[in-house]
């Protein structure tokens, strides 16, 4: 039974890919966004092979000179830092951390948000009351003091950065998916499913979930974008993981070096990457928004 349920899910998921492809291709911006995301993914996946240097290796130019604060050149395409680190290598390796943090916290937060939203919306009553008070409490919690406390207690660790991001981000998706669930559960096909004998869990995950899927993917993209921004600000403020390098962390190093006014290239590369990746995610999510919210559809 379990196996057959799983295989049906796979079947549905596989059939869904064509649909997702169509959604993404449906508009030029999301097409560009999707390609950029793929490029970033490839860079992240092959980062160690792409990066010519170790991120914390002091580099020398071909004349044997210590390469400190060099602007972009053929030799150092994105320039170097004041300590002679190659920014191109840093950027490529940082893509990996940034994408992993974005994807992991984005996906965990949407999983939590979606389940809480579905359950609160479907059951209503006391269950809804408790879950929504919980989200209200989290809404009142500002991010920075929260992450400061976490870092103070547990140290600068990637896991806690992700934990802090997830705890802050899931709440919005929970609310939106709850609202959508409430509207879908009143539709007659849900009553029909009940009449055929479907249990509550079956109705939630087999009948309602596919109908909130476009909205869910929209918020998955939002959540990933927000995670990346949040991680960048946390790193910039010095709350990132000290062991790994991320785009936000690169900007933090720039800030610490005091060279902000001179080393424009050091500022440019990570900022442009953050903006490009977040914009790409927003573009792709826009395509899903049109599916989730038919009123936006032009047809």
């Amino acid at each position: 039974m379990l196996a057959s349920t799983a295989s049906r899910w796979l079947h549905t998921a596989r059939l869904g890919i064509g649909e997702h492809y169509r959604i993404i291709q449906s508009n030029p911006l999301s097409r560009i966004g999707f390609r950029l995301i793929v490029v970033f993914l490839v860079i992240a996946a092959f980062a160690p092979w792409i990066a010519p240097h170790d991120p914390w290796e002091m580099v020398y130019d071909k004349d044997g000179q210590f390469a400190s604060l060099r602007p972009p050149s053929w030799e150092f395409p994105l320039g170097t830092t004041h300590l002679g680190y190659d920014l191109f290598s840093q950027l490529v390796l940082a893509a990996r951390t940034t994408l992993v943090i974005g994807a992991v916290s984005g996906i965990i937060s949407i999983l939590i948000g979606a389940n809480i939203g579905l359950i609160a919306g479907y059951y209503g009553g006391k269950v809804d009351e408790v879950l929504m008070r919980l989200t209200d409490i989290l809404y009142g919690m500002p991010f920075l003091p929260f992450i400061i406390v976490l870092i103070a207690l547990f140290g600068r660790k990637l896991e806690f950065v992700i934990l802090a991001i997830v705890l802050i981000i899931w709440r919005t998706s929970a609310r939106v998916i709850r609202a959508q669930t409430i509207s879908i559960k009143q539709r007659q096909f849900i009553l029909a499913a009940k009449a055929r004998g479907a249990s509550d869990l079956r109705i939630i995950y087999r009948h309602i979930l596919p109908n909130v899927l476009p909205l869910l993917l929209l918020y998955a993209a939002f959540n990933i974008a927000w995670s990346i921004i949040t991680e960048a600000s946390a790193s910039f403020l010095g709350f990132g993981d000290g062991e790994t390098i991320s785009w936000g962390g690169m900007l933090y190093e720039l800030w610490l070096s005091g060279k902000t006014r001179v080393a424009w290239w050091w500022f440019a590369a990570p900022s442009i990457c953050i903006v490009l990746l977040v914009t790409s995610l927003v573009f792709v999510s826009r395509a899903y928004e049109e599916v989730a919210n038919p009123r936006l559809r032009k047809r």
């Binding site: 096909f189 029909a192 499913a193 055929r196 004998g197 596919p210 109908n211």
Partner: peptide
């Protein structure tokens, strides 16, 4: 209104026997 828009015909008809 009474057919789930995200289900294929075969799945709609099979839903009751599967659920029970």
């Amino acid at each position: 209104e009474s057919l789930n828009p995200r289900f294929r015909v075969a799945d709609i008809v099979a839903e009751g026997p599967r659920a029970l």
